[in-house]
Design a protein around this nucleic acid. Structure first.
Lengths: 188, 188, 188, 188
DNA sequence: TGGTAAGCGAGACGGTACGTCGGGTCTTCCA
DNA sequence: TGGAAGACCCGACGTACCGTCTCGCTTACCA
């Protein structure tokens, strides 16, 4: 299929999504206005609607860009690896406005397609945690009775729980306590 | 303070909140429109705003009605009590539309006052879990090294995590596995 | 029927129509923008749409206000009366931007309801001309063979014809020539 | 000047103007959209704009095709010639949708260039009428006091007046009455 | 019993955003 | 160079909400 007509301006997508992100940071998630995004991006509103059929899709695309780019290099010390991974997740969550995470979650629950996109956001790191846990269990560092999938939930779930439900802070001490509670006291 | 003037119509509150709930079930959380709620409740918009200063507060009140009415009677078997409590929380979460829980969470993150209200929703049960955990630790049923607050998060957090983040199901087996993983294998 | 609810702000209609007229004079008939009219009138766009369901209706209302208010006092000299009447019509036409008259005509042809409204604009004066012509014929001042309705058309039609079709000027001399050509040379 | 490059597709002009006319008949003058015309004509919008610099010019060209092709052969009977000419003008006006004539008039008032074009539409016939009137006056068939230009306006103007302003019908009897009123009763 | 204070229904109003449509320009490839 | 295809800018339209306001009517208590 030969592309016909004037090709899409490659810069538009980036400028628009940047603008959307900036709007979101400046005024909050649900105050994102397509008109303002267009103006900030130096783009006509129609151009935005040509690419994303609704504001929801635009926001979804904006979210999708947050993904990726966090390298993780497993060592042979599961305790260290888990601490690092969980700290990383916590740091990401803390770096984003809580409102954004919550609104993302809500959007994910509403729209299956957004759901996929949002879950993909967290997927990479959760997978890494799962891998480390599995390895730890193989190495006999975990009580044999524990279901590894449950252990992962118990390690990662509390982060979201605190952020979204109880509003309690997530600090390094808490992360250590989580790992501690999961793997048992450190034997030095 | 003697109330002056015409007393408030006692039926209004119920009718409005019923209508709001119906709207929510019929068209989704974010399609709740104050005008439509008013119409459905057979009430003037003014009347709604007299009682609840904003749509958020109205929704909050609607939510608040979901609360309460779950008696809990601690036995002397913490394992049993925890299973029952966590099962109860899970049942509540599963009974509500996921979207509602997610949107509540989002609203809580946006508006501090809504936050309080939503947290109050869960507070009673979380408190019960905390109490049982504390007792269990006193009884020596928990590893001494565990911070009880962390243990609570690890018991309850995964429920919200599955519901809101991963979308994985929460079934009785999962609840048992959680308790199991927390208290260690049952010694029969 | 008892009026319910907050009564309409009596000043709004006038302010909006004034604003519409100002817009029209300033930027031309088809450059009237509802948003700008709203802003100029100090009124919300929704308020305009509450009263007039579309821009066309708004413009129609604006037009309707141009009507009326030109007293005519028949003397017993038909030649004088006709000259005065035709001069008046010509003055009105010249006072309005030609574009407006033309656009009005076009709108009238498109929309029957607008048509009625626009025809009503001219009706009063045309009726006066008809009356004077009829009187003149009764008085024997017109050739007996002429159909009075045709005479009216021949007296008034050329004004619109020049304005809209040929674009030739309508000056007092032309008006005199018209009357002259209709009634024959003045017998002094 | 040797033409370079690919020659213009001769069929395009006709297809586009046909399409424009069809659009006009189907949906009304002001619903003519360049995009739709292009689509209907199976032509790119660019191609249209290459030939006609604006929608107005396109419509103008569409109109221009309506012109011409009405041979007129003056006899030596002015009454007969005038009747025939005026009947011809009336027939043309009646054959077109009133909306079209009115919109043309409006477009002519807005855009000087369109004005020229539209006036050219009528010019040929109006000139013929002028010529016959002049001849009639030379022959002494008209009252000496009449300005021939005014007489022309009084003969032709009423047609447009009825069509555009009063909406009254133009039938053969009316045309005869016009000529009658202008030349005086027929002396048989 | 008549005044005063508040509740209530109804709906106007200001404001912000949405998604769509149309005109006219520009950019690419192909003939 | 002409043409098809379609991206792009700009400006306007009409709609949907929210939260405030202004009426008239009703229901209480209080003097």
């Amino acid at each position: 299929m030969v592309p016909r007509g004037r090709p899409r301006d490659a810069g538009v997508e980036g400028r628009v999504l940047d603008a959307a992100m900036a709007e979101m940071r400046a005024r909050g998630y649900d105050a994102i206005s397509v008109d303002r995004v267009a103006e900030r991006a130096g783009v006509a509103k129609t151009t935005i609607y040509r690419r994303w059929p609704s504001k929801a899709e635009l926001v979804m695309a904006m979210i999708a860009r947050l993904r990726g780019g966090v390298p993780f290099d497993p060592s042979d010390d599961p305790r260290h690896d888990l601490t690092e991974l969980v700290t990383g997740i916590a740091a990401t969550l803390e770096a984003l406005p809580t409102t954004l995470v919550a609104d993302l979650t809500a959007a994910a629950a509403r729209e299956p397609r957004v759901g996929e996109s949002v879950r993909a956001l967290w997927a990479e790191r959760h997978a890494a945690v799962t891998a480390v846990i599995a390895q730890a269990q193989t190495d006999g560092l975990l009580p044999g009775h524990a279901d590894p999938r449950v252990v992962v939930d118990q390690l990662v779930g509390p982060l979201y729980y605190r952020l979204l439900i109880t509003g309690e802070p997530i600090d390094p001490a808490y992360v250590r306590a989580l790992v501690h509670s999961t793997l048992g006291p450190e034997q030095s």
